[in-house]
Amino acid sequence: MTPPTVARGLPRADAGLALLLAAIALVLVGAWPERADLANASWYPVAVVRTGGLLLLGWLAGSTVEPSRAARRAALLRIAVASVATAPLEALAFVGTAPSASLAWALFAPLPLAISGYGAAWTLSTVLRRVRLGWALPLASPLVAAGLAWLDLQIGPPLWLPWLVPAFPSLAAAAVNLSGAVVTATLASGVSAGRRASA
């Protein structure tokens, strides 16, 4: 069956979203307690899978970014839709677990993190292509990701690590990831390019 064409720039579900939804649902059901005397701890793995999955989606989309502005904008929209579409599953795990954490943070923090990841991967791929080292991207990408994770472990409050960010809200993480997301969205959607063109 062929899906209808995309109308008015609205993104369409893809395999990435299907995998993410399936993974979250699987983890949620697997971690949900079978007996009433067992504590519900399903939110912790669900939050890690959702945050990590969204970050991975953003990173992969940034690494394989197409040069067109519309494609970049669509990629960012797909990340935003995936974040919204998976939020109820995490909310279900959260209210069942009743952790000492913030639901609002748990639901909204992964989106700027994923967009920042998109921006970091896009920057990396652009730089490597500029210096004609695009072939090294599959090697450089995990190395840079590992370096960023190491850096995060060194500097106190968790900023990027998907297994720590949901449970540890911090102003630093909000500021860093929101700034990264705004800069990424501005550059990727071509606002600055549009301004230069109009000038």
Partner: peptide
């Protein structure tokens, strides 16, 4: 969980 995931993905796939 499975019903929600399938329904949301299908509706978004239909676009």
């Amino acid at each position: 969980a499975v019903g929600f995931a399938a329904l949301v993905w299908t509706l978004l796939w239909l676009g």
